[in-house]
């Protein structure tokens, strides 16, 4: 498989290690109420689709970036890849991102 690294172009999948569903980006707040329930879902429950899947790959033998790759788990077609950091920052509030004001 070839992964289309957003900065480096197509790279051999053997340079990467795979973590799983990109939902791992949305870590619940550990100090919130009912954190236990939220973490149970976060740690154990997955959609596991046969089809388009957003997933986390680590470019271990490369630039050590984490990527969110959109891949069809049935055909292996890869529809896109972005830096996980960018995806994670997008879902933060401005204050959390450290933006001024």
């Amino acid at each position: 498989m070839l992964i289309p690294h957003p900065l480096l172009g197509l790279r051999d999948a053997q340079e990467f290690s795979y973590l799983g569903d990109a939902s791992l980006l949305d870590r619940p707040d550990g100090l919130a109420e009912k954190a236990g329930d939220a973490f149970f879902s976060y740690v154990y429950l997955r959609e596991n689709p046969a089809g388009v899947h957003r997933e986390l790959w680590f470019h271990e033998q490369g630039d050590r970036s984490w990527l969110v790759v959109t891949r069809n788990t049935v055909t292996h077609e890869i529809l896109g890849a972005e830096l996980a950091r960018d995806v994670a920052l997008r879902s933060r509030s401005p204050r959390e991102r450290g933006d001024p004001a």
Binding site: S17, L19, L24, L25, R27, L56, F58, E60, R64, S65, W66, L83, A84, R85, A88, L89, R92, E96, R97, G98
Partner: peptide
């Protein structure tokens, strides 16, 4: 050694990217 480093990068890039 390898897996902890990987986990630390995951935390840095994916969980808390707002941290310096």
């Amino acid at each position: 050694a390898g897996t902890v480093y990987r986990h630390m990068e995951f935390a840095r890039q994916c969980l808390w990217p707002e941290l310096d």
